[in-house]
Simulated assay, not measured.
Amino acid sequence: MIPLMLHRSCDLGPIRAVTARIDATATGLEAEFRLDGTLEGIVLPPSGPSIRADGLWKSTCFEVFWQGIGEEGYREFNFAPSGKWAAYGFDSYREGMREAPVKAIALSCSHASARGSGEMVLRANVAADLASPAQVGLSAVIEHRGGGLQYWALAFAPGQPDFHSEACRQLIVER
């Protein structure tokens, strides 16, 4: 698992660590995200059907940004603990946004707490045509019960948190 870093503008809050891993598969990608901390202090959307939905980044969710080496366009995948997901394609930095085609997305989420400490694990399996090799970014948005948001990523560009920045895509992944 790879540790994600908390953006410098965010308070630490109830989550003390976020780690992630990603692998290219013959049919797309597999990702896993893990939160460690006081889960009772964050908003976890209620479980529901595994459907495509927009606006997942407004609450607790996990994201993968996938860009073929040398390509200007990229994909964004969002996964919520509720089972909802999103997949977008972009022609270039925040330009040409559209729903990206996927063959299937399977999500599983588990969490456990004891004496104020807990962990949550979200696993995503995406079947989609993806470029290889690729620059990949892994990130998380964590909503606190008090309404604040934390932003976690492999790296950040200077300024406000922006997961779309190529500076966040720190991993090279290939089949």
Score class of each variant (00 low, 15 high):
Gly55Ala: 10
Thr60Ala: 06
Ser59Val: 11
Ser9Gln: 14
Thr25Asp: 01
Asp23Phe: 02
Ala24Lys: 00
Arg75Phe: 11
Thr25Asn: 00
Ala17Glu: 10
Ala20Val: 12
Leu12Cys: 12
Gly41Cys: 00
Phe62Cys: 04
Ile42Gly: 01
Glu30Asn: 06
Tyr74Lys: 02
Gly70Lys: 07
Leu35Pro: 09
Thr27Asn: 08
Gly55Phe: 10
Glu76Thr: 05
Gly13Arg: 09
Glu71His: 04
Arg34Ser: 03
Thr19Ile: 01
Cys10Arg: 10
Glu72Val: 12
Pro49Ser: 13
Phe33Glu: 03
Thr60Asn: 09
Trp57Cys: 15
Ser9Cys: 11
Leu39Asp: 10
Arg16Val: 11
Leu39Gly: 06
Asp36Val: 14
Gly48Gln: 11
Glu72Ala: 15
Ala26Val: 08
Glu72Leu: 15
Arg21Thr: 10
Leu39Pro: 06
Gly13Leu: 09
Glu76Arg: 04
Thr38Asp: 15
Arg21His: 12
Val43Asp: 05
Glu40Lys: 01
Leu35Lys: 06
Gly70Arg: 04
Ile42Val: 11
Phe62Trp: 03
Leu35Thr: 08
Ile22Lys: 07
Val64Met: 04
Gln67Asn: 01
Cys61Asn: 10
Val18Ala: 03
Tyr74Glu: 01
Gly48Cys: 04
Gly68Ala: 00
Asp11Met: 09
Asp36Gly: 11
Gly37Asp: 09
Ser59Phe: 12
Asp23Lys: 07
Leu12Trp: 07
Ser9Thr: 15
Pro14Met: 07
Glu71Gln: 12
Ala31Asp: 02
Pro14Cys: 01
Arg16Phe: 05
Leu56Asn: 05
Arg21Ser: 15
Ala53His: 10
Gly55Asn: 13
Val18Thr: 04
Trp66Thr: 10
Gly41Ala: 00
Phe33Leu: 02
Arg75Ile: 01
Asp11Ala: 15
Gly73Ile: 00
Ile22Thr: 03
Phe77His: 08
Lys58Thr: 13
Leu12Pro: 13
Trp66Pro: 12
Glu76Cys: 09
Asp54Thr: 13
Val18Ile: 10
Gly48Pro: 08
Gly48Met: 05
